[in-house]
Design a protein around this nucleic acid. Structure first.
Length: 202
DNA sequence: AGCACGATGCTCT
DNA sequence: GAGCATCGTGCTT
């Protein structure tokens, strides 16, 4: 047994890692409550972190905007696994996108992380972004050094070097919802269903 | 401030 | 072979 841990590491402070129970819930609830949480990445031994500003929910094979709508494939298989793991995939020939798997094992659902405000390791993040912002799903992965090797990582363990902490709680009045981005050929109602969540800026 | 477009490669049919 | 859960640039308003 190691030494007694300070209370903040026992799971009650803003630095507490979100556990599997957090992700093992309704995907919309997870997408909403991820706003204000702190995405943490250990890159080359340095702690980088940002406050989550925007998310989108992708829920099950019925959801025609969800990668699982075509059934289980090699690419989307992580979404069918246990909640609290990273689903990372490649798109548009150059971009990696990061999702957190939600809901019970066997049901394919995930929350796409679309924007962060840099909070720790800001100098490194800015350098990796060429001085530009982190408002966009591929900008997050670029800023934090996340690629296909992170697919399937356990977000509920520090050993993964990638996790989410409790951070801040965002009041309902500061949350804006709307249709998900980029689903131009997806049929209704999935194309317009308001499963995008963002913190109102300014 | 807003739109159009090219970059670039993986996944699935 | 088609289609992408995008981004940055460059041009127009």
């Amino acid at each position: 047994m190691g030494p007694q841990l300070p209370i903040i590491q026992r799971g009650y402070g803003k630095d507490a890692i979100l556990g599997q129970d957090f992700y093992d819930r309704d995907t919309l609830a997870v997408a909403r409550s991820l706003l204000g949480k702190r995405l943490v990445r250990i890159l080359d031994g340095e702690r980088l972190a940002g406050t989550i500003l925007e998310t989108e929910a992708y829920i099950g094979e019925e959801d025609q905007g969800c990668h699982a709508s075509a059934g289980r494939t090699r690419r989307n298989s992580v979404m069918y696994g246990p909640p609290g793991h990273a689903y990372v995939y490649f798109t548009y020939g150059m971009h990696w996108l990061l999702n957190a798997v939600t809901g019970r094992q066997g049901f394919p659902a995930a929350v796409l992380l679309r924007a962060i405000e840099p909070l720790e390791g800001v100098k490194t993040i800015h350098a990796r972004r060429g001085g530009r912002d982190c408002l966009g799903p591929a900008k997050i992965t670029r800023a934090l050094g996340i690629d296909g090797t992170a697919n399937g990582l356990d977000l509920c363990s520090r050993e993964s070097g990638l996790w989410i902490e409790a951070g801040e709680t965002i009041a309902d009045g500061l949350v804006q919802t709307g249709p998900r981005v980029g689903l131009n050929t997806v049929p209704e109602p999935w194309r317009s269903i308001p499963w995008r969540f963002r913190i109102k800026l300014r």
